[in-house]
Amino acid sequence: MTAIATRPETEHRGTTAPPARRRDSERLFNRVALGTLIALAVLWLVPLAWALATSVRPAQEVVTNPTGWFTAHPTLKAYGEIFDAGKLPYWYANSFITSILTTVLTVIMASLAAFALSQTRFRLRRAAFVMLLAGIMIPGQVLMIPQFLALQSAGLLNTYWGVVLPQVPNVVAVFVFKQFFDGIPRELIDAARADGAGWLRTYWQIVMPISRPAVSAVTIFVFVGVWNNFLWPLLVVTDPEMMTLPVGLTSVQDVFGVPYAQLMASAVLGAIPLLAVFALFQRRIVEGIAGTGLK
C-alpha cells in the first residue's frame, strides 16, 4: 500500500525467438498451453451458458430433462413471468439510484480528502494520514450491527440514504486519488495558487480535470461494488419495493416451487447490467486493476 507507483506499460511480449534446436519443444509447449487454456476458458463459460440455455427452455422440459442444453421450442416465457411479478423494475431502479448516489458522493469526498492530504500542508496532516491508513484495516462488514443501529435511530432504514451513506467512507478510494494527485507536477498547483486561486478552485478547476483516469477508475469500481453489495442492503432494506437487485432476486420468493427456468432467467437478468458494463469498459477495468496501487 505504501509503495504506490504506476508502472509504465511495457509492450506486449510475444513468444521469444529461441535457438533452432529449442523450437520444437517451444512449439509443443505452446500447443499444450493453448489447449489447456481453451479448455479451461470454455469450462469457465459453462455456468453462464447453461443459465442462459435453461432460461429459454419451456418449464416442463426443464423438469423432464433438467440437464439438457438445447430446446426445440425456445421461449421467453420465464422472463415474462419475472417481469409480471412486478418488482423487477423497482429493483433495477433502486440498484441504479443507490449505486450512482454512492459513487458520486464517494468520488467527491474521497478526492477532496486526497487533495488535502496530497497538496496542502496542515497540522495533524501526518496523524490524519496514519488514521486513514488504519481505516484500511477495518473490515466494514464486522461493523454491521452498530451501523444498523445508527441508521435505525436516524430513521434512515428503508431509504436510499440508509443504503448509501455507510458505503461512502471508502478509504481505498482516497488512496487511489492521493496516489494520482501525488504525481501532479508541483509547479501546476503553485502557478494556480500564484494566480490567486483558492484551494477549492485549484482542486476543481486544475486538479480534477486532469484526474479523469482516477475518477473513472474509482467510479467503475465503487459502482460495481455497491451494485453487488448484498449483506448491507439485506439488513437496511426490508420493503420489497425498496430492495436492490441482488437482495430482491434472492429474498423475495415466488409461490409453489419456483421453476428453474425462471430462477435462471433471474440470474441472467441480474447478470446483464454488469456484464454490459464490463463489456464496455473491459480494457479500462483491467488496466485499472493492472496499475493497482496495492502493489
Binding site: W50, P66, N228, L245, P246, L249, G270, A271, L274, V277
Partner: peptide, 30 residues
C-alpha cells in the same frame, strides 16, 4: 481468456449463488 476468466468477477454474489444452487441441485444439477 480475459473475458472468460474475469467476467464472473463482475457478477453479484446473488447471481453466482443462484447459478450454483442450480448446478449443485440434487438429481437435476449439472
Amino acid at each position: 481468456f480475459r473475458f472468460a476468466f474475469f467476467a464472473p468477477f463482475v457478477l453479484p454474489s446473488a447471481v453466482v449463488s443462484l447459478l450454483f444452487m442450480f448446478i449443485y441441485a440434487d438429481q437435476l444439477g449439472l
